[in-house]
Amino acid sequence: MKVLVAIKRVVDYNVKIRVKADQTGVDLANVKMSMNPFDEIGVEEAIRLKEKGVVTEIVAVSVGPKETQETIRTALAMGADRGILVNTGSQDVEPLTVAKILSAIAKAEGPQLVILGKQAIDDDCNQTGQMLAQLLGWPQGTFASKVVVEGDKAEVTREVDGGLQTVRLTLPAIVTTDLRLNEPRYASLPNIMKAKKKSIDEKTPADFGVDAAPRLKVLKVSEPAKRKGGTKVKSVQELVEKLKNEAGVI
């Protein structure tokens, strides 16, 4: 069976971002960009399913600017078979737009499983997988910490409040990844070289009849209220005394 993995190019996990002085957004000039960490987990899961013989082909799809090619190459170097880039230029795209594009691609490609990260670490929306599931009329296993495919079903163990919930989905289905699903591999040098020969199809939202214009108007992006560090205490006794008498929280 075929699997689609959706990946997003985002500001690298370790970068401390800066809000632009004119409050129009976050400064992305000369900032290191990487694959969204949850999506890396998605790519890894697809590869593991292929190694188990469940999956025969992995297609890595990304919606974003031209530079997103690099992110798709990373997925190909990890082990995806081919890529599709839907080039949106400098336009910011919302999860609904991405879900519509992925839905059109899923209809054309006919995968049994689409794996996505549970959220992107830039907009923190946590929407795309669920939206895609609804648009396709498919079931979903979000925040997955374990995925077992058997016949035409997938058993997905999900991270929920207070523990784990397991659901059984009739394929085709959507899975979104949580942190504990797996630990993504690093691409080896030979695989990075090999990935250069793998194909990446380039498309635009218009190819799928999707209007990529955002629905929400961003009025401003600002710095969060800063928290000031307080005082250092010298001993546990002083700490308890302060918590009791100064802060009044115990």
Binding site: L96, T128, M131, L216
Partner: peptide
């Protein structure tokens, strides 16, 4: 919550609005 985050985007997508 994990539960609300799970179902709500489906509602938004079906209504064709951004969540």
């Amino acid at each position: 919550s994990p539960s609300g985050k799970n179902y709500m985007p489906r509602v938004a997508a079906a209504l064709d609005v951004a969540q």
